[in-house]
């Protein structure tokens, strides 16, 4: 495949979140990603759309799957990809986040993929660099490519997003996946239920355009999709939830609880899974109902689409030469 001009306009320099994207923006990205799903299933998966471009994956929080997904996406588009993992201890040596930004900026990257443990950190960095920034997850704020890959997964299986009823279950408070998905599903006309114990639902969540439920029975009723979120072990040791076994008993997804949803409802999980905590292992592996493996595949395609959409807005001349 050779480089072709983007057949739509993506009117943003950066992709910092789903917030601000229109239904048309989202649809354009999903349509483009669809073409990459097909490409990724061929033997020759390589294009030259990003040839000459430098993509830096800057991860302040370790993440095997998201980082490798972005790496693969960049490489398949022909970019030079560099991975940088910055442990938080390195920052404690005195270099501030903005020092890091200035240093990286001097390396003239074209695309910067950033994950950071603090909400808003990626937006802060984006203000200080002159390249396109892609948010790979900031704190409990947003994780836009996850929402897009979830949407693509659903759209390919069910043919649409609008009119669907989707339950997002678990630790909503600490989940950037929940926030980005809620924004995206709302934008595309799907209805979202947030389900979890009161200690894991943030204040005024209902004002974000979702229905709030505290039992799986009520929350899953009539749902086409049941999306489970990962719950951190340290949050199930009495701080927010008394124990893993109580959490699994009340909120862990198994076939019995899945039966509260629509017949043939599908199961999703952004990974990595805590089998036996938020999801039953057997259910997670049942490809009849579980879309979890599809999600990983769609991840690469969606990241290729977002990288390409941002790259299309990059200037073609070197800025440092004064010709911008």
């Amino acid at each position: 495949m050779t480089s072709a001009a983007l057949n739509f306009t993506f009117p943003f320099r950066d992709l910092l979140g789903i917030e601000g994207l229109s239904a048309a923006d989202i649809t354009n990205l999903l349509d483009l990603a669809d073409t990459y799903v097909d490409l990724n299933r061929q033997i020759d998966k390589k294009t030259n759309i990003l040839r000459g471009r430098t993509q830096i994956n800057l991860f302040f929080e370790s993440s095997t799957r998201t980082q490798s997904s972005f790496e693969l996406a960049g490489k398949r588009l022909g970019a030079d990809v560099m991975n940088m993992s910055v442990s938080s201890s390195a920052l404690n040596k005195g270099e501030t986040l903005l020092d890091t930004a200035v240093t990286l900026n001097a390396m003239n990257p074209d695309l910067l993929v950033i994950r950071h443990g603090d909400s808003g950190a990626v937006a802060l960095l984006a203000q200080k660099v002159s390249c396109a920034v892609l948010n790979a997850g900031d704190g409990a704020h947003e994780h836009p490519t996850q929402a897009l890959l979830d949407a693509l997964t659903i759209r390919r299986r069910l043919g649409k997003l609008s009119g669907l009823k989707i339950a997002i279950c678990g630790d909503i408070t600490h989940s950037r996946v929940a926030r980005s998905n809620l924004l995206l599903f709302n934008a595309m006309g799907a209805q979202v239920n947030l389900v979890g114990p009161r200690t894991l639902i943030p204040a005024d969540a209902e004002r974000l355009g979702a229905n709030i439920y505290h039992t799986m029975r009520e929350g899953l009723e009539g749902c086409d999709i049941v999306m489970m979120l990962r719950i951190q072990n340290e949050r199930m040791q009495g701080a927010l939830v008394p124990s893993v076994r109580e959490y699994y008993h009340l909120y862990g997804l198994n076939r019995e609880k899945l039966a509260f949803a629509k017949p043939h409802a599908l199961v999703m999980h952004p990974g990595p899974m805590n089998r036996g905590a938020e999801i039953d292992s057997d259910l997670a592996d049942d490809t009849e109902v579980s879309l979890i493996r599809d999600q990983v595949e769609m991840g690469v395609a969606v990241r290729m689409a977002t990288l390409e959409a941002l790259a299309a807005n990059l200037p073609n001349m070197m800025q440092s030469g004064g010709t911008s």
Partner: peptide, 15 residues
């Protein structure tokens, strides 16, 4: 401040 904005920003609120 704890509330809708904190929830939207993914920041922990102070009640």
């Amino acid at each position: 401040h704890e509330g809708e904005l904190a929830t939207r920003l993914g920041l922990t609120g102070i009640p």
